[in-house]
Lab assay of single mutants.
Amino acid sequence: HSLRVHINGKDFEVHNADEHVIRALEELIRRGADADELKEFLERWKG
């Protein structure tokens, strides 16, 4: 899957995101994670 996440006016393109990554991202958003947390998660995932 390809996923586009809009954080703090920046678009993050997440390519080849598997279900696990997408679910983790949705969980963060549901918990009310702020932009920094989401960005950190995506950067860690992209490795």
Score class of each variant (00 low, 15 high):
1 H>D: 11
1 H>M: 06
1 H>C: 07
2 S>C: 08
2 S>D: 07
2 S>R: 04
2 S>L: 05
2 S>F: 13
2 S>P: 14
3 L>I: 15
3 L>F: 14
3 L>A: 02
3 L>R: 00
3 L>K: 01
3 L>N: 07
3 L>M: 09
4 R>K: 15
4 R>I: 15
4 R>E: 13
4 R>N: 15
5 V>L: 08
5 V>T: 02
5 V>I: 13
5 V>G: 01
5 V>A: 03
6 H>M: 06
6 H>D: 05
6 H>W: 07
6 H>Y: 05
6 H>K: 08
6 H>Q: 11
7 I>W: 03
7 I>L: 08
7 I>N: 01
7 I>C: 01
8 N>V: 02
8 N>K: 05
8 N>H: 08
8 N>Q: 06
8 N>E: 07
9 G>M: 01
9 G>T: 00
9 G>V: 01
9 G>Y: 01
9 G>S: 01
9 G>A: 01
9 G>C: 01
9 G>W: 01
9 G>L: 01
10 K>M: 11
10 K>S: 07
10 K>H: 09
11 D>E: 14
12 F>C: 01
12 F>K: 00
12 F>Q: 01
12 F>T: 01
12 F>V: 06
12 F>H: 03
13 E>Y: 14
13 E>D: 06
13 E>V: 14
13 E>L: 10
14 V>A: 03
14 V>I: 14
14 V>D: 00
14 V>S: 01
15 H>V: 11
15 H>W: 08
15 H>C: 04
15 H>M: 08
16 N>W: 06
16 N>M: 06
16 N>P: 04
16 N>E: 07
17 A>G: 05
17 A>W: 04
17 A>S: 06
17 A>T: 09
18 D>T: 10
18 D>Y: 04
18 D>A: 10
18 D>S: 13
19 E>H: 10
19 E>M: 11
19 E>L: 13
19 E>S: 10
19 E>A: 11
19 E>Y: 12
19 E>P: 08
20 H>N: 13
20 H>V: 12
20 H>S: 12
21 V>L: 15
21 V>C: 03
21 V>F: 12
21 V>P: 01
21 V>T: 12
21 V>W: 05
21 V>G: 03
22 I>Y: 06
22 I>G: 02
23 R>L: 12
23 R>F: 10
23 R>I: 10
23 R>M: 11
24 A>W: 09
24 A>K: 11
24 A>P: 00
24 A>Q: 10
24 A>F: 07
24 A>M: 10
25 L>I: 11
25 L>E: 00
25 L>S: 00
26 E>L: 14
26 E>G: 05
26 E>V: 12
26 E>Y: 11
26 E>R: 10
27 E>A: 09
27 E>V: 08
27 E>F: 06
27 E>K: 07
27 E>M: 08
28 L>T: 01
28 L>A: 06
28 L>D: 00
28 L>M: 13
28 L>S: 01
29 I>Q: 03
29 I>C: 04
29 I>L: 13
29 I>N: 02
29 I>M: 08
30 R>M: 13
30 R>L: 14
31 R>T: 12
31 R>Y: 10
31 R>G: 13
31 R>P: 01
31 R>H: 13
32 G>C: 05
32 G>P: 03
32 G>F: 03
32 G>H: 06
33 A>K: 06
33 A>R: 03
33 A>F: 08
33 A>W: 07
33 A>S: 06
33 A>Y: 08
33 A>E: 03
34 D>I: 05
34 D>W: 04
34 D>F: 05
35 A>I: 15
35 A>M: 13
36 D>I: 08
36 D>E: 12
36 D>T: 10
36 D>F: 08
37 E>C: 04
37 E>K: 09
37 E>T: 08
37 E>I: 08
38 L>V: 14
38 L>T: 02
38 L>S: 00
38 L>N: 00
38 L>R: 00
39 K>V: 15
39 K>W: 15
39 K>A: 15
40 E>T: 12
40 E>D: 14
40 E>N: 12
41 F>S: 04
41 F>D: 00
41 F>A: 12
41 F>C: 02
41 F>K: 02
41 F>P: 00
41 F>V: 08
41 F>Q: 04
42 L>D: 00
42 L>I: 14
42 L>Q: 02
42 L>C: 07
42 L>T: 04
42 L>A: 04
42 L>F: 12
43 E>V: 12
43 E>H: 07
43 E>Q: 08
43 E>I: 12
43 E>Y: 05
43 E>D: 14
43 E>N: 06
44 R>G: 14
44 R>W: 13
44 R>Q: 15
44 R>C: 11
44 R>I: 13
44 R>P: 04
44 R>L: 14
45 W>Q: 03
45 W>G: 03
45 W>I: 09
45 W>R: 01
45 W>L: 09
46 K>E: 15
46 K>M: 15
46 K>H: 14
46 K>W: 15
47 G>A: 09
47 G>M: 05
47 G>I: 11
47 G>L: 11
47 G>C: 07
47 G>T: 07
47 G>F: 09
